[in-house]
Amino acid sequence: MDLRQLTPDLAVSAQIQPEDLPALAEAGFRVLINNRPDQEVGPDEDHEAMRAAAEAAGLAYHYNPFVPGQITPEMIAAQAEALATPGPKLAYCRSGNRSTVLWALSRAGQEPVEDLLTTAAKAGYDISGIRPLIESLAKQEV
């Protein structure tokens, strides 16, 4: 697993497997956020399989699928709600990029845009292309 820390209580990752979840729970994670749509994975990694594995490992589970290019206000709100769940969190998708994008969008207006972009870049994700969206959302929060 290639876990990349965005904040002290949030890491992002590429696709994980159900058998990874006990080790993640043992490592201290308490929340799993699945941003990978079912149509991108097989039945062993779909949201029902991942929910069952997360619950068996004692993790809270959130399914917020992000189809590339289809960001909605509801999706951003759902990610913010999932991120508000107490405890260390792991969000994942195909590469970790979409989970990082949703994190940044959910933080718009709460942290400086440059800080969000820098944090993502330090984790290996270039999300500079969504700067205008982050700025727009930040203005709405005021």
Rank of each mutant, 00 (worst) to 15 (best):
R30K: 14
P37M: 04
S106T: 01
A54R: 02
R51M: 12
A52T: 15
Y61D: 07
P68Q: 08
P65I: 11
L117I: 08
L32Q: 04
I127G: 00
R51Q: 15
D9F: 13
L137M: 12
A104F: 00
Q39W: 15
V67Y: 13
E141P: 04
C93P: 01
R51D: 10
A82W: 05
P65Q: 12
A77N: 13
R4C: 02
P43C: 10
W103P: 00
Y61Q: 06
F29A: 01
A108S: 10
V41D: 10
P73T: 11
G96K: 00
P18E: 11
L83D: 03
K89P: 00
P86V: 01
Q39T: 15
Y63K: 11
V41N: 04
G124K: 05
G109N: 10
P88F: 10
A54E: 06
E135S: 06
A56S: 13
R4G: 02
E45V: 14
F29K: 02
P112S: 13
L105K: 00
Y92S: 00
L24P: 06
V142S: 15
L117A: 06
E74Q: 15
V67T: 14
E111K: 06
N64G: 06
D115G: 06
K139A: 15
L90G: 00
R30M: 10
G124H: 07
S128G: 15
A104G: 00
E111I: 03
G28K: 08
R94C: 05
E81N: 05
Q70E: 14
A25L: 05
E114R: 08
